[in-house]
Design a protein around this nucleic acid. Structure first.
Length: 221
DNA sequence: ATCCCGAGGG
DNA sequence: CCCTCTGGAT
């Protein structure tokens, strides 16, 4: 068992080795970890990802067929009637803010990026409704650019694991990147997020069935 | 009641 | 740091 006292006195090298052991177990436990949003283009992915805020991917996937039939391109979405768009995405929650952001995103893409979804983090985060997390999801899953997508699951887990004590998502991202300089960061993100949803919940984590328990200082019997 | 693979704004 | 936006699932 690994205790917090162990973590306090473990060397940077020992911490790296422990983290990588845990990372290997995650990869073995979730070999199929992937983005669960349905999409066929960067435009569809960025749109679906904006909708996925505070909403399960399964529910997003229920509205995207109608959404992309009605607005097949950024140009079409940029010209959308807000009320009609809201009616399509209503069931994903936050529909007013999301509709506003979607139209703003599509307008910015058409007006400033020639109708193409930008391929850099700096450009993506200028789009309305796109923060660093959404930007990294798009980069990783639509453009094959490795990146850590630090959401609430990701941050909670790596702090519980004792990989870092940082709370700021950017600092968390850099700390984890330093621990896994040569791993597929997109996949590692999905593995952590799947684990957060399936076992390492915010409340009442299921340590009893967790394959990482032996290496985790937050293990509770 | 509480939670969803957030983002923007004060 | 906090708050708000929002609906549906459990």
């Amino acid at each position: 068992m690994t205790t917090w006292a162990d973590v306090e006195r473990e060397s940077p090298l020992a911490r790296t080795r422990r983290a990588r052991r845990m990372g290997r177990i995650l990869a073995e436990t979730y070999p199929e970890a992937h983005c669960e949003l349905d999409f066929r283009s960067p435009y569809q992915l960025i749109t679906a990802t904006i909708l996925s805020a505070q909403c399960t991917d399964a529910r997003v996937n229920r509205v995207t067929p109608a959404l992309f039939a009605r607005y097949p391109t950024p140009q079409a979405l940029a010209a959308a009637d807000p009320v009609e768009l809201e009616s399509i995405i209503r069931s994903t929650g936050f529909f007013r803010a999301k509709a506003r952001n979607l139209i703003g995103m599509a307008r910015t893409v058409t007006e400033r990026f020639g109708g193409e979804i930008p391929r850099t983090l700096d450009d993506l985060v200028t789009l309305p409704g796109v923060g660093r997390k959404t930007a990294n999801v798009v980069l990783g899953n639509a453009f094959g650019v490795p990146g850590l997508t630090v959401d609430t699951h990701f941050g909670r887990l790596v702090r519980r694991f004792g990989w870092t004590r940082e709370k700021d998502p950017v600092k968390v991202e850099f700390a984890v990147a330093a621990l896994f300089p040569r791993r597929d960061w997109t996949r590692l993100s999905h593995e952590l997020i799947w684990h957060g949803r399936r076992i390492c919940h915010a409340h009442r984590p299921e340590c009893g069935i967790c394959p990482l328990a032996r290496l985790c200082p937050s293990f509770e019997a």
